[in-house]
């Protein structure tokens, strides 16, 4: 039962990623695209955790932690670049 639930949840996260990609392609402004990238890395973390449950391995938590930190740093860097013109003043 857990196997089927993980597969269904992965399909639902795939649908979520596809909706995010639709908004990223169609998004009228830069702020929409930043928002979509922020949402995409959070979805990637969830999919990596689901893959870890599916394979029964605890090796994926470090990858998820790295994606969380680097995604946040990337979002803040792009926002600072758009706000101020450079990243570290």
């Amino acid at each position: 039962m857990l196997r089927i639930a993980v597969i269904i949840a992965m399909l639902m996260f795939t649908v979520s990623v596809l909706l995010n990609l639709y908004r990223m392609v169609r998004g009228p402004d830069l702020a929409d695209r930043i928002l979509t990238l922020d949402s995409l890395y959070v979805n990637a973390i969830a999919m990596i955790i689901l893959l870890g449950i599916f394979l029964g391995s605890t090796l994926f938590f470090e990858a998820a932690m790295l994606i969380a930190m680097m995604g946040f740093v990337g979002t803040v860097a792009v926002c600072k670049y758009l706000l101020r013109g450079n990243i570290i003043e």
Binding site: A5, V6, I8, A9, M12, F13, V15, S16, V17, L19, N20, Y22, R23, L35, T36, S39, N43, A46, L50, I53
Partner: peptide
Amino acid sequence: FILTGAGFAVIGALGLA
């Protein structure tokens, strides 16, 4: 818990789209 989380993610992405 897994299905609830996936449902929340789909609702968020649907609203985003």
